[in-house]
Write a protein that binds this DNA or RNA. Structure first.
Length: 869
DNA sequence: CCCCCAGGTCTTTTT
DNA sequence: GACCTGGGGG
């Protein structure tokens, strides 16, 4: 991405632009881009198709505002989607402006809100040292609440409750609102209200915010305290929001609040005093100018509350809005763009927009169908090796997938092929148990009122303090109204605790007190409870010394708990890896201390809470990047693999019944395709192991939406089982006999939905690509179209259209395998059957191969034949 | 109080 | 296949 400028043909050839005027901020931009840079006025919408150079436009716009003295850097608030994008933007601005980026806020919604909340926390009963609960913390808290209220018998789980609460909070709704609108005769709704209320209370007691609160509470803060809002409204004169299509209602409201004018009655409280030239004709400070950038075709976060209407209705929303459309793509070849256009064109609920490029067609998209996900992964690994041999850097290659669980097979093959790779997101470093344990110490040190962190800290490593002791301490803490640490110090006052536990607890409390003193830099000043009035003098402690480096605090914790030593002492090799992870955490803390000297523990915890999946991407790492399609948004790579392009995966099974679900999945596919610059590979498998057993997979409907002339199949879905001609034999063999139960049902469905593919250069395809329909009942339409497609295909199968490859699934029929049989496998060679499990079409053979060892195979579908005994 | 094992449940995507 | 829960034994 750093070399984007170099690859930008607009810069190289000038295109249709007027001759360069010698302005570095405008030269090399196309006319639309220029308009977006120089446009002024209250509101600007930049509709930026994928790869149309929007980051460049945004940075140039900001630089232009500053260079033309229309704004000080400190008057700019730029919101990006990830911290990485923010860092990149700041870097590019530095390149354009030199040093003049001091004081500019370039950050994510969440980081910006934390910054505001930490400053203003005291105004609404929080302490600035509040904890940020990630989803796991929220769920841990909800789990306790659900158990306390016996709500699990009503089907409430931490996961579904947390999702529902999150959704409500994204709509800026709280428990009181919910209670007033719910159907009170429904016991489930009443119970949910109780859970929600308890959850809010517990968060407050813990001095903690969850992710959604960060936005929502900031909005509440602004609404409840116009004087606070006035400070920020006055400060930020230009607000720019990237990826606007993925903003939710809370984020939208935040932007709305910030772009309102400051009314005359608020002016008096502002410091420094308001000067005449800041005011408009009505004696107000006018609202900030707003620039939003987005692409409704790339809206993929509806599940998180993102509301596509925010961007679609922007013009209605902000009157006098100017609109600039960027459609020229500087990233991909025409073939890739044509595929992307073809796919997204099937979403009928969008404004038509076509990406185009001045570059040539480029290579065709390469397609491959493996018969299993291992086969698919093997192809990916081999192609990566080829690309690398031909001179492409590993860092220029990315592999995308829909679900995190798909990484397993890919990693296995990449390891075997000695290809350096890294997985972004997924099981994150900070999700590991041992890391969470260590982090719990740091969190409880920063916020001794946080029960989740305290409880985790108490139990790890095991020290003989169990749930009973924990409950006694927690009760004492609540009754006395002290911090958890103070409760521990006074363990002697709790008669229910045994002498041994008392000693352990007091010693632990002593260690925490030392660590706290270090972390806060004071002489052991106890952090005050979350009460607004008292919190004031917490900050006025002039005698405070500088906080110690985070690494020192962590070192104290690790040393005194002997966490690393205890792990090393175990004989499980996994525990060695855990010990190394803790060493790694220490290294991360040292790195943080070096990057931000004196920032302290709280800043470290904040940063860790807000890292996004794409943030740990290191452009210089020189490794292949693996990530979900969601994480891929905003990134680009010369070579891209999209894997698992199957029905049920993309579109994901879960989305099929959701309102607009298919359309969102299609956008996800579109995002994936448009990440590729030169080479795009689309792969799938005809069987996939899920849940431990193996199921038949069908090619994704999105695959059929790509014109076949754009794809060069190395192995098409129709060919995959065609080796040795067994497929046709199997297909003529008719319906599988005796396939009972659910497996039979799924089998017959698969047989009915044969897919027509132009494998091997077949002519005009009869592929059932449905016409874009008009209307707005998208879900119903989706279903109807799906049914139409299936009907058409069924007809095609029966009527025998010439290009239809009848049946794309191998079928070994009722091949009987028994213990001890020798078989030959197309890929693995010869092997011996150890066992056969399952029944019907789900029969699985456990085979030890001479070359690769034990494998499990679906008898019906595996490319195997029985050797004579 | 802690460890181990059997059995049930689940899997979309993430700041 | 992985993770969590609950019961039994040490």
């Amino acid at each position: 991405m750093s070399d984007f400028e170099l690859l930008d043909p607009g810069a190289a050839f000038g295109g249709a632009q007027p001759a360069d005027g010698g302005d570095p901020l405008l030269d090399g931009l196309n006319p639309e881009q220029r308009r977006a840079v120089v446009a002024r006025g209250p509101a600007l919408l930049i509709v930026a198709g994928a790869g149309s150079g929007k980051t460049r436009v945004l940075t140039h716009r900001i630089a232009h505002l500053i260079r033309e003295k229309e704004a000080w850097p400190s008057q700019i608030l730029a919101i990006t989607f990830t911290n990485k994008a923010a860092a990149e933007m700041r870097e590019r601005l530095g390149g354009l402006l030199g040093s003049g980026v001091e004081g500019m806020w370039v950050s994510t919604f969440h980081s910006a809100c934390v910054r505001i909340l930490r400053r203003e926390a005291e105004r609404f009963g929080y302490v600035s040292g509040f904890t940020i609960y990630d989803s796991a913390d929220s769920r841990a808290l909800l789990k306790r609440i659900i158990k306390d209220l016996d709500a699990d018998t009503y089907g409430f789980t931490p996961a579904n409750t947390s999702a529902k609460i999150s959704k409500l909070k994204n709509e800026l709704s709280d428990a009181t609102d919910y209670a007033s609108t719910m159907n009170a005769s429904d016991p489930r709704e009443r119970l949910f209200t109780e859970i929600f209320t308890a959850y809010e209370q517990e968060l407050k007691r813990a001095n903690a915010f969850d992710f959604d609160d960060l936005i929502g509470q900031t909005v509440q803060l602004f609404r409840a305290h116009p004087d606070v809002a006035a400070i920020y409204k006055r400060r930020f004169r230009h607000i720019l929001v990237d990826e606007y299509q993925d903003t939710n209602h809370a984020q939208y409201s935040l932007i709305r609040e910030l772009t309102k004018s400051v009314e005359p009655e608020q002016l008096a409280t502002l410091v420094p005093p308001v000067r005449e030239r800041e005011l408009d004709g009505l004696g107000r400070i006018p609202g900030a100018s707003l620039t939003v950038v987005g692409d409704s075709d790339q809206s993929i976060y509806a599940f998180r509350g993102a509301d596509i209407r925010n961007i679609v209705e922007f013009e209605r929303d902000f009157s006098n809005a100017e609109v600039v459309k960027l459609e020229q793509n500087y990233r991909s070849t025409q073939n890739i763009l044509s595929a992307a256009n073809a796919v997204i064109g099937n979403n009928f609920d969008r404004q038509d927009k076509k990406l185009w490029t001045a570059e040539g067609d480029g290579d065709k998209i390469v397609g491959f169908t493996g018969y299993s996900q291992h086969d698919e992964a093997r192809f990916v690994a081999e192609e990566i090796e080829d690309l690398h041999r031909d001179g492409m850097a590993y860092g220029d290659i990315a592999v995308f997938y829909r679900t995190n669980s798909q990484t397993r097979a890919l990693e296995e093959l990449l390891i075997r092929s000695a290809i350096p790779y890294r997985v972004l997101g997924g099981t994150k470093f900070y999700d590991r148990a041992e890391i969470k344990d260590a982090m719990a110490y740091l969190t409880t040190i920063a916020n001794p009122f946080d029960p989740i962190a305290w409880s985790r800290m108490l139990g790890a490593p095991k020290r003989g303090v169990g749930p009973m002791a924990e409950a006694h301490l927690a009760n004492f803490q609540e009754a006395e109204g002290v911090s958890f640490h103070q409760a521990m110090e006074r363990a002697a006052e709790i008669p229910a605790l045994g002498p041994k536990i008392r000693t352990t607890v007091v010693e632990l409390a002593d260690m925490l007190a030392r660590a706290t003193a270090m972390a806060l830099g004071g002489g052991g000043t106890e952090v005050l409870p979350p009460v607004a009035e008292e919190a004031d003098d917490e900050t006025s402690d002039a005698s405070r010394k500088k906080p110690a480096p985070v690494a020192d605090v962590l070192k104290l914790v690790l040393d005194s708990t002997e966490m690393i030593e205890k792990l090393r002492a175990k004989r499980d090799p996994q525990d060695d890896a855990r010990a190394e992870n803790l060493e790694e955490l220490l290294a991360v803390a040292r790195e943080f201390d070096a990057q931000q000297p004196g920032a302290g523990l709280l800043a470290f915890l904040t940063e860790v809470s807000l890292v996004a999946a794409a943030d740990d991407l290191d452009d210089q790492s020189g490794t292949v990047s693996l990530m979900t399609l969601h994480t891929a948004k905003g990134l680009e790579y010369p070579a891209v693999f999209i894997t698992g392009v199957e029905e049920g995966l993309i579109p994901h099974q879960m989305s099929v019944d959701e309102l607009g679900g298919i359309n969102e999945e299609r956008r996800l596919m579109y995002v994936g395709i448009t990440r590729a610059r030169q080479k795009l590979f689309i792969t799938l498998a005809s069987t996939r192991a899920t849940f431990g057993d193996i199921a038949v997979a069908m090619p994704s409907r999105f695959l059929q939406e790509i014109p076949e002339s754009l794809i060069e199949w190395r192995q098409s879905p129709g060919e995959v089982t065609g080796r040795g001609g067994t497929a046709s034999r199997a297909l003529n063999a008719g319906r599988a006999p005796g396939a009972g139960g659910s497996s039979g049902a799924s089998w017959s469905r698969n047989r009915d939905s044969q897919v027509s593919f132009g494998a091997g250069g077949a002519g005009g395809s009869s592929a059932a690509v449905s016409e874009p329909a008009s209307g707005n009942m998208q879900s119903a339409l989706d279903k109807w179209r799906e049914r139409k497609r299936l009907a058409k295909e069924a007809q095609a199968a029966g009527g025998g259209f010439p290009n239809t490859i009848v049946g794309n699934i191998r079928d070994n029929g009722d091949l009987e395998l028994a213990l001890g049989d020798r078989i030959r496998h197309d890929e693995y060679g010869e092997g011996r059957v150890n066992a056969v499990t399952g029944a019907g079409s789900k029969r699985v053979a456990h085979v030890t191969f001479d070359s690769v060892g034990e494998r499990k195979l679906l008898v019906k579908l595996a490319p195997i034949e029985k050797l004579s005994e």
